[in-house]
Design a binder for these strands. Structure first.
Lengths: 119, 119
DNA sequence: CATTCGCGTAAGCATACGCTTACTAATATG
DNA sequence: CATATTAGTAAGCGTATGCTTACGCGAATG
């Protein structure tokens, strides 16, 4: 937790810049080199380089060195994990949108000695 | 960017604790009060309170005050946004998994004067 | 062979983050 | 009415984060 703070995918996409990088790369038909990517942003090239490194370590971006250039492309598998995590709950809850209303009403009705669940 | 750093949904789910809270709440049939939630974790109740506040501000968790208790339940709409963002690209790229291979090969083949795309 | 280009990384810095420990308020409970 | 329970918030602190500038290195270019 001190030196080896391996970021996970969810942390990776938390940063707006990194998400924009993903957006940008994902829309390309061909891999982009780092310079081209950096030109789309107002921040410095090293900053982009660092962000892409993180995205790569998390498995979101694939990197291929070609001569002096670094080509990046999207690796969609990890994005899938995110989609599955978020999609699971949103689907789960679509079926019981009104569960809250029901429960609160019921709770209010008995209101006296419930909560007998201790720990 | 100084005082009003409104977090977005992606930042909200970046923290493992917040994600566990979502996991926990989402699996309940009934809303949980804050104390009950906090008992599932090793960190202090105020810490949980703060995290839930963030989750609420981002629209991931719904809060209802009932007497002295605070009941929490999942609000799946924002999770849907995440699922859509991540799902879009993973689907998009499933169709061209091998686009990279193709491109790199082709690039290597011509290798001389490409990149004439400037900006 | 000198120069340019694309790149990675280190150092430094301001700020954000997540937690803790108080403290206070408001609601149940005896 | 005294006490316990549930909760929100402020203050403080160590660390993580994201950026900058500076530097060095290998690949293209003339």
């Amino acid at each position: 937790m001190t030196s080896e703070t391996r970021r996970d995918v969810f942390q990776a996409i938390a940063d707006p810049t990194r998400r924009k990088i993903v957006d940008l790369i994902a829309h390309q038909r061909q891999p982009m080199n780092l310079k081209t990517i950096a030109d789309y942003f107002n921040i410095s090239r090293p900053a982009i380089s660092q962000q892409i490194k993180i995205l790569n370590e998390c498995g979101l971006v694939e990197i291929r060195k070609q001569g002096r250039e670094t080509f990046c492309s999207i690796q969609p598998q990890e994005l899938k994990k995110i989609a599955e995590w978020a999609g699971r709950y949103s689907r789960l809850w679509e079926q019981r949108i009104d569960a809250f209303e029901t429960y609160v009403t019921k709770l209010h009705a008995k209101k006296n000695k419930r909560n007998g669940k201790s720990k």
